[in-house]
Each structure stands twice: as C-alpha cells, then as structure tokens.
Amino acid sequence: MKTAVVTFPGSNCDRDMWVALRDVTGNDPVKVWHGDADLPDGLDFIALPGGFSYGDYLRSGAMAANSPIMRSIIAAAERGVPVLGVCNGFQVLTEARLLPGALMRNAGQNFICRTAELIVENANSHFTSAYSVGERIAIPVAHHDGNYFADEETLDRLQGDGRVAFRYADAVNGSRRDIAGILNAKGNVLGMMPHPERAIEAAHGGSDGRRLFESVLTVVA
C-alpha cells in the first residue's frame, strides 16, 4: 500500500502518523509538503496529520485548506482515494469543504489532552471495517478546537446516512451529538478529532487505533 503524509507549516503529528502507517503497512509513507503542487502517482491513502498549521491563523485549518497541495488532495478524494484527516487534519478537511460542518473552540474553553472513549457508529467504512458497531475504543484526544458544529439538517443527514463514524462515549468538547468523526458522502474521506496514530502499540498505552489503518489496508491491498 502506497501512502502519503502531508506536512503543513505547523503540523506536529506528521511523524507519528508516518510511523503508524509504516508499522501497519510495512512500507515507508511518502512525505508530501504543503507547497507541492502534485501528489505522487498511485497513492492508495493520504493522511492529513494533527498540529497547528499556519499557527491556527484566521481559523484552525483555514489557511492550510488553501495550500497548493490541497487542490491535488481534493482531486484525489473525488477520484475515491481514501483520505484521513486527524485533529488539525479534520479541521483542514472541513475548511476545504471535503467534509460538512466546522470545528469550533471547545465548549469548556480548555485544551483537552487525555484518552477518550469512543463508540464506533459505522463499521462498514474503508476506515472502520475492522471494528464492530457499538464497540468502545480508547483513543487519545489533544485539541482546543474540537467542538463539532453543523446545523440540525446536516446532523440528521449525517446520522441518517451512517456518516457518523465515531461518537464520544461521554461529552468531551461540546460537539453536537457528541460527534468525534465523520465520513463524506462517498465514504472515502474520514475526519476525526481523536488521534488513532497515537494508539498503535501497547507501549502507547493502547492499540485501538491500529485497526483503523488495518481497515484501510484491507480495502486497498
């Protein structure tokens, strides 16, 4: 499986993502810089990592969403290439309108850094087939702007179409309907605030994130 990790100025989870993908796929991911115009050919999976791209100027993810590389990523997503955005990557995907809604300041105003319990809501997607519906998994969260917002109509549609991938078991950041991760209509783009790449092996304190990457591997391998 040929994977890529995109680095924006201010990304800081790109290496964690790179190591996670290498461990799961057995191949070194390609490192892609935000200023690149084109993605390498033949990619099976693209990851947008966490961090504080462009110092969160204007709005989290707003500047990165307009980076040169994003045009190629949007085109790849439209072709059906699986794209995962974690934390800041999720913010970038919403700002780029690849996913609906927006991520706002946490309701409690505080930066939240701890392990959160998630409920798997959809176990049929490219990213979640190795989980089962209703399963509870432990994945670290570390964010200031993770409060998912969308209007009621959009929330109903997401829920009705099975596009809520993960929900927080308990309210974490004020997200509407405790949404932790959502899919696009085609199901090949997932954005989530929790960090699966930080839960890959026992030494991380848990390995519940590993199956997300293994799910993708089974789809594209």
Binding site: L58, G101, A102, M104, A150
Partner: peptide, 9 residues
C-alpha cells in the same frame, strides 16, 4: 466566502 469567513458558522 472563500477565506475570510467560514459561512458554515
């Protein structure tokens, strides 16, 4: 529309 505001919110 494209940058200064996020019209979702």
């Amino acid at each position: 529309e494209k940058l200064l505001a996020n019209t979702v919110i």
